[in-house]
């Protein structure tokens, strides 16, 4: 699935909630609860995403030419937010990840999450995921 397809799917799912903030919160939390989690052994300071208010641990690996991301967070809503990004990015090639523009938050009325303090965190997550993709691109280039 292309990154745009994943984003469009998210937008569709949230459209059903009709902008109800509480339902959106609950849905996001639920997505976080269902997410495949990073093992406890990886919840170390080295894996913390810098710039988040709550703690977010992120880890990635390259399988073939695809990147897989795993994450966890100490807050339920943030966990759900990362899970959305993982849905978009995980399983894509480094090239696709780097060139993807994230547009779903605005479309699902999530810009207030991305308002003030949390927003820097959200942007920090995207940045970190892209940075890791850039590193994998170098790895792949060196293989060829």
């Amino acid at each position: 699935m292309a990154t745009t397809e994943a984003q469009d799917q998210i937008i569709e799912e949230f459209a059903i909630l009709d902008g109800d903030q509480e339902m959106m919160n609950f849905y996001i939390v639920e997505l976080g609860q269902k997410m495949e989690l990073l093992g406890e052994e990886y919840m170390i300071d080295d894996n913390l995403v810098k710039g988040c208010q709550s703690k977010v641990w992120l880890k990635s690996e390259l399988t073939g030419d695809k990147v897989k991301y795993l994450a966890d967070s100490n807050t339920a809503i943030t966990k759900g937010l990362v899970s959305l990004l993982i849905r978009v990015f995980s399983g894509q090639t480094p090239e696709d990840i780097i060139s993807t523009e994230i547009y779903f938050p605005e479309k699902i009325g999530m810009s207030r999450f991305i308002g003030t303090q949390r927003s820097n965190g959200f942007l920090a997550m995207i940045k970190q995921m892209k940075l890791e993709a850039i590193a994998y691109r170098v790895v792949l280039e060196n293989q060829n």
């Binding site: 919160n25 939390v29 208010q53 100490n74 809503i77 943030t78 999450f113």
Partner: peptide, 11 residues
């Protein structure tokens, strides 16, 4: 987590 409490009460 307190952040979740704050965010959800805001809703």
């Amino acid at each position: 987590h307190p952040f979740d409490i704050g965010q959800m009460l805001d809703a």
